[in-house]
Amino acid sequence: MSNLINNLILREKIIDAVREYFKLEKFHEVETPLLVPSVIPESYLENFTTILFDRRRRRKKMFLTASPESSLKKIIVAGLGNCFEITRSFRNGETDSLLHSPEFTILEWYRVGADYKEIMKDCENLFNKISINLGINNSNISYGNTKIDLAPPWEKITVSKALKKYAMVDFDDITGINSLKRIKKIATDKGYNVSKNNTWEVTFNQIFLNEVEPHLGTNGRPTIIYDYPAILAALAKLKKDDPRLAQRFELYIAGLELGDCYTELTDWKEQNYRFKNELKLIRKSNKNKVVQDDTLIKALKRGLPDCSGMAMGIDRVVMLFGDIKDIKDTKFTFS
């Protein structure tokens, strides 16, 4: 019980620090709905569905949000400017894991007029603020057997460089013409069990998880890994000088994946096209069918200003600062 109390107090302090950081940066804190009639179609995750009854007991299929992204973008289109939200998110099926929980606490923030490089700075400054508020020496924190110095600057490495360095895979060899065939050949040569229906994403992620991820954020500093393959960034802007890459980064500290950032895609046609693709993938899978959030496309049509957004798992931040192995121990939850 005392562990739970300690961890709840740690969580409270971390959330206070996050709020203080964004308030000092003059961000607005907003609240957005968790119960929604339509969602961003994302083929790799499973939405919770439920039924809403109206006064006449007519039934309407509703969803619990997997992130507040869609609502926050609409608020930015409406003109609020920089904003953040700390809220719950729901992803069905994500049980049996020390890192995932079907219900979890997410922090999302959006900076208007900024690209992903500026959000990298936010991450460094935010963790600095958390360390100060917790009264800990940020140059010497440990998670498991890993010692970490949280002081900036952090390690920054592109996906392509990390692939080369840790997996000896050349990014040019797995992108472009026949990319699926070529990445499967590389995976097969490496000894992975590659089957006919494996997609590029699955094949890439198996190599990434086995050979690259174990090195991220483990050499004494946090790692920001950036410029992801375009296919792995459904809502991100592509790089102008290399459209194979998306302006996306992920933050890893001591092997924990803590958050994901995009320079946001503002082109509604492109976004609609990517949504349709995701819907096709969902239809082909055995996942719950979803209703596409057309009002987000409408909002993009009205004009989303250039902006960048980051989603961060607050439970995992608590895991890091509390040296907690299991996400369930970071909060009060059912067992």
Binding site: Y44, L45, E94, T95, E201, N205, A233, E257
Partner: peptide, 8 residues
């Protein structure tokens, strides 16, 4: 079980 960000 683990899910990489934006992945299966």
């Amino acid at each position: 079980f683990v899910n990489p960000g934006k992945g299966s």
